[in-house]
Design a protein around this nucleic acid. Structure first.
Lengths: 348, 348
DNA sequence: TTGAAAGCGCTAACAC
DNA sequence: GTGTTAGCGCTTTCAA
């Protein structure tokens, strides 16, 4: 079975391909009667435009590429879900690529995205290397980052304000009498971790409490990492509150605390910064800095559509309207979604 | 910046486009020196073939489409991860689409996949409607199902043997003296659930134990669903062992049991049929029928690549070699991966 | 309001 | 081994 082409429709409807194209693309310059006739033939022939041919001719693919370190990670999956929902709304398809945090891989992915002519790229992940940043820039394709920060202002990015989030929760705990608060991060290299630490330090400073740098603990990002005695490390440093960058780490600490028969939250408190749905299926439920992951994905995608439209207008030499810019500022490319502290059952 | 085209390369290397095309596609019919010269120009010009143009000319997109009910679901995400890993190996890109289990949505997705000329489709989900099955058939694109069954033999599918898995665990429990085993499923409509029930019943029959049909409990697929007193329902029917179709349900039951101070596993036992990594981050860890979700995705994708190759050969009128068929049988399209019962801490 | 025609960048006969 | 050429199915001027 060969599918109908625009040419078949044109012939059947006794018009030119151009007219069919106009009808399909809702171009207003078609007489109503002609439009109706073409429509009828389209339905009769079950004509669907070939997106590939269209892409070649128009240099648009209505496809966006997503690069992320690991799709099996729950937070990533939730973000992708948010992305998908708005992509769907705007009729974009999404191509997914796992980078495994590998630079070579990323390079290949970018190339493949370029070759597939994606209209935009969403880069998710806890950090982005300078090389990748450079490659992305050269691609000349609209890009939005999420889950990681623009250290410069080349790209738009969508996140929560990690510094402030960290500051808020640390400050709150300090004000309520906690002194020794441990903070567990993946690595000092991670910009997200850096911001968390910055907020943490600022809170200590403003509350005039002395900070023990041993309480900043590096090297934990999964349940497994942490299950090898992280709690002992925390306790060795006399902390009885811990802030974790990842939910899995929080859960691991919780289990270790339970194994040691610590009373939670009276003896020991836990707050996670990730906030996937995992936190709701532990007992007790783990308190967290609420971080709307789905929304972050959705907003990132929405932002990308705006940039794509602006770039399109720009390349056509068109005026860019206020409406196009709605909600975007050229000089402030870091978009931050609101966060809030959610006390579940692992904080007093 | 305009990217180089095959034509630029041809001109610079003083050969025809055809030769460049041959070099790019590793066609052996090129003299080594010519090949080298072309390669050099390709690198100098940073030429990357345009996949869209290529797709239009060759009617292949090196892209496969994945339809699934919910990407934010952990099991789906793990399967996608498996798919991605082999897709990457075979240089396919993947387009992801959330169907939200909605038929209209699926229809649109299939159309969009068709229009994007995907080389194959992977359909994940607990069940597939007759309509969708029909649409998929008409598409004339290779399809592999996973997570759900082919009730007929139109499509290849990759799963574990749910009937046998259910039979195995039920039989084992019955042999060890349990009498009242509850089984919690999403819905009687689900083919997967049906097979689980079939295995469950077969085990009861073979062990000559009487089965109480109240123990087959329908309507639970998430933590939330279950948290509304599922345990009570189970206990009302005097069961002290439960098999759940989903991990979240198992976790919910576990928590309810803990709330009631049931001793686990001595008073109450739990086995899940899903086996995501969630089961490892509960305390106690939940026993399960081990189900290699990542592998199921990987094998499904691998199967799809084989079918694509076979169809390609077929459409060219080529002989299909033994090698092409490796591991595939035309008359047995249900591929089943091995399962095994994993006793963690919620079974005696 | 419509049509003609020139590509978009590549592949794949077919010819040499 | 290599080149020529005719599309693939569509968009998009430009002209009518």
């Amino acid at each position: 079975m060969t599918t109908a082409t625009i040419y078949d429709v044109a012939r059947e409807a006794r018009v030119s391909m151009a007219t069919v194209s106009r009808v399909v693309n809702n171009n207003p310059n078609v007489k109503a009667t002609t439009r109706a006739r073409v429509q009828e033939v389209i339905e009769r022939l079950k004509y669907t435009p070939n997106a590939v041919a269209r892409g070649l001719a128009s240099k648009k693919s209505t496809t966006i590429g997503i690069v992320l370190p690991d799709i099996a990670d729950l937070a990533s999956a939730e973000a992708v879900s948010g992305i998908e929902s708005v992509a769907n709304m705007y009729k974009y398809n999404i191509i997914l690529a796992n980078s495994c945090s590998d630079k070579e891989m990323e390079k290949e992915i970018f190339q493949s995205f370029q070759s597939k002519q994606v209209d935009g790229i969403l880069y998710l992940g806890h950090s982005i290397s300078e090389e990748s940043r450079g490659l992305l820039k050269k691609l000349n394709i609209p890009v939005v980052l999420s889950g990681n920060l623009g250290s410069d202002d080349t790209f738009y990015s969508v996140n929560i304000d990690y510094e402030k989030a960290s500051y808020d929760i640390t400050g709150e705990l300090l004000k309520h009498g906690r002194e020794k608060i441990a903070i567990v991060i993946s690595s000092f290299e991670s910009p997200k971790a850096q911001r968390m630490i910055a907020g943490y330090k600022r809170a200590y400073a403003e509350n005039k409490k002395s900070l023990d740098s041993n309480l900043i603990i590096e090297g934990y990002k999964s349940y497994k990492d942490a299950s090898n005695g992280l709690l002992t490390t925390i306790q060795k440093n006399k902390a009885n509150v811990v802030l974790t960058m990842f939910d899995e780490v929080a859960i691991s600490v919780l289990h270790q605390a339970q194994d040691k028969d610590l009373k939670i939250p009276s003896d020991f408190e836990i707050v996670s910064f990730e906030n996937t749905k995992l936190l709701d299926i532990t007992r007790p439920k783990i308190s967290s800095v609420f971080h709307p992951i789905f929304d972050v994905g959705a907003v990132a995608m929405r932002t990308l559509t705006k940039i794509i439209d602006i770039e399109k207008a720009r390349s056509k030499g068109q005026e860019i309207t206020e409406e196009d810019w709605a909600g975007l500022e050229e000089d402030k490319k870091e978009i931050q979604l609101p966060h809030r502290v959610v006390h579940r059952q692992t904080t007093k």
